[in-house]
């Protein structure tokens, strides 16, 4: 029996993203799938090393007994920034791609590209 916790949900979400990448031909949906994968990774990381009842490692935690592991949270701040950058760059490139080929479909875009070659 698989319990419903951060780990199992995030792995499920990750493969939802992978499914989207494989099955959807729309370029925007591909970029969305990548975002879903990133959200899954973030969820996975921040549920690492957290005991029930622990507090986030922010501010004055000297009196608290259980503090969540700060490292994955610090790493995820970096990853959120990278994720935003990647999505923004992907969408910007998509705008240019759309202007040039006039389609949002990977297959059609590929055919048009090969005609140019």
């Amino acid at each position: 029996m698989v319990t419903i916790n951060g780990e199992s949900i995030s792995i499920l979400l990750f493969f939802v993203g992978v499914y989207g990448l494989i099955a959807r031909q729309n370029i925007i949906k591909s970029i969305m799938s990548i975002s879903i994968m990133q959200v899954a990774i973030i969820l996975y990381f921040i549920t690492t090393n957290i005991a029930p009842g622990s507090v986030p490692p922010i501010g004055d935690v000297a009196q608290t007994l259980q503090v969540a592991d700060p490292l994955p949270q610090a790493l995820m701040i970096t990853d959120i920034v990278i994720g935003i950058g990647v999505t923004a760059a992907g969408l910007t490139m998509f705008i240019h791609l759309y202007h040039r080929y006039g389609s949002t479909n990977w297959q059609k875009v590929m055919k048009k590209r090969n005609r140019h070659d």
Binding site: I27, I31, I34, A89, G90, F94, H96, L97, Y101, R113
Partner: peptide
């Protein structure tokens, strides 16, 4: 053809 090649490279590596 640059934009298609660049986009493929970028998204696949991401």
């Amino acid at each position: 053809v640059a934009i298609y090649d660049g986009m493929m490279y970028f998204l696949i590596n991401v």
